[in-house]
Write a protein that binds this DNA or RNA. Structure first.
Lengths: 245, 245
DNA sequence: TATATTTGTCTATTGATATAGACAACTAAA
DNA sequence: TTTAGTTGTCTATATCAATAGACAAATATA
């Protein structure tokens, strides 16, 4: 550990900075050998703040479900490591997480038909304002939301993919039902942002949390774009692993 | 725009949330058609806060060099769009940014010899505690810091690469001087975090800023790992573009 | 059963954050 | 020159954030 001190009057409360540090330490596994957090007094000393400030941080993480305090015993860790989400030629949600999670699920929030925006039409290589089908989904691993995505498909080519998704609860299988037996990741752009209120709601995050945003194009065997999607990952629950071959 | 409202008593001051929103709007280009920000009263209405709160946000961004206020005239944007940093089989800093920046530079902060940690030895595929050379660098585009990296090399195979870097000011050329004429990106893991105080200092960020962290392995023509590096990008200045073929 | 350790609760005080209103200073346009 | 629109500065008040100290309540252990 280096001297990762806190910043005062930065517009971010000390208790939130401490909460973020502890959460991140837990995610990377560098928090504690056992499942127990050091006593409040020791943490207060380590961060150079009052015990009550540490308590505010712990209370926030307790609210999030990351910690659990027991009077007289100590404060204990509930969650553990980040999931590693692979991005490669063949990127699929459930298969990608492999053995890291017991159960994975992608559920549909909403679907609809839009006219393709500038961005969507460019990425799908179709004319602007062409009708496209939009799917808003949330993916969970072991019941914890991991990512939310909006995907667009050419409505001419993939009519009924929304119905297919409702039936199969999987993009891969919905595409298969539309005759696309294989597809590959063509491009992925990644950025990071503070979570929006919608992210916080849907991914069950806390205020000030971070999301990793990917904008990706999948193409069929002929190299034609079939899907453009924008996905927001909870950055404290996943890391993205790029496979470059 | 959806209802991206603010959160009260979240531990993040309203003025900072507003500053982050404005900064991000500027980065994505969705801030204003011209270079002028709406009047303070209008922004206050839009965010549902007092004018003084908006002023605090503007003052912070002025301090950062993102905005410039002129009494009687208005508040103006000193625009800077996000750079798109490509990650592919052949990933090199200067070449990657291409025409997006006028000048690029990577300078050495520090170098030294360590015993390989668990992580480093695993990624370089060498025995733990083998001596490794570490290079701490900061990369700039047009004089603005974009990323900072720590790279490790097997000290047996790459003796003197620290000297070579000092001479050539480029990892690619320093490797060439050590007999590696070509190398490819083997794996890249990406996550996002709040900037540490060291990040804030070296990348000239503001409190609460986000960094994209990549952990990457480069390998030579025979597929042997030659370099492991951890890089921290200023998330408000760059996006990472993954090329999957 | 004592005793030390640890979390929980209370009171009090100070500084940072946010709201409210008024008016000065400056700019651009009528 | 006048006016409307905009940023800059000031005072005042209420709430949140952080510090400080004291003691209660629960747990583990000597």
């Amino acid at each position: 550990m280096t001297g990762a001190l806190l910043e005062r009057k930065s517009g971010v409360a000390l208790w939130r900075q401490i909460a973020d540090l502890i959460r991140s330490d837990i995610a990377t596994g560098s928090a504690a050998k056992n499942d127990r957090l050091p006593p409040e007094m020791e943490l207060a000393g380590r961060y150079g703040v009052n015990r009550h400030t540490v308590r505010a941080a712990i209370a926030a993480l307790e609210q999030e479900g990351v910690l659990r305090s027991e009077q007289g015993r100590g404060t204990f860790i509930r969650r553990r490591k980040r999931l590693s989400y692979p991005i490669a030629k063949r990127t699929r949600f459930s298969a990608g997480l492999g053995t890291q999670a017991g159960t994975t699920r992608t559920r549909l929030l909403q679907s609809g038909e839009d006219a393709a925006s500038q961005t969507v039409s460019e990425n799908l290589d179709i004319a602007p304002d062409t009708p496209v089908i939009r799917l808003d989904t949330v993916s969970e691993a072991d019941g914890v939301p991991v990512s939310r995505a909006t995907s667009w498909f050419d409505a001419n080519r993939f009519a009924g993919i929304d119905k297919a998704f409702e039936e199969h609860a999987s993009i891969t299988r919905a595409l298969a039902a539309c005759g696309v037996t294989d597809y590959v990741r063509k491009s992925t752009v990644i950025e990071a942002r503070h979570a929006s209120t919608e992210d916080i709601d849907l991914l069950r995050l806390s205020a000030g949390a971070i999301v990793l945003v990917t904008r990706a194009v999948n193409a069929d065997a002929d190299g034609r774009p079939i899907q453009y999607s924008e996905t927001r990952f909870a950055a404290d629950r996943v890391e993205l692993k790029i496979e470059t071959d």
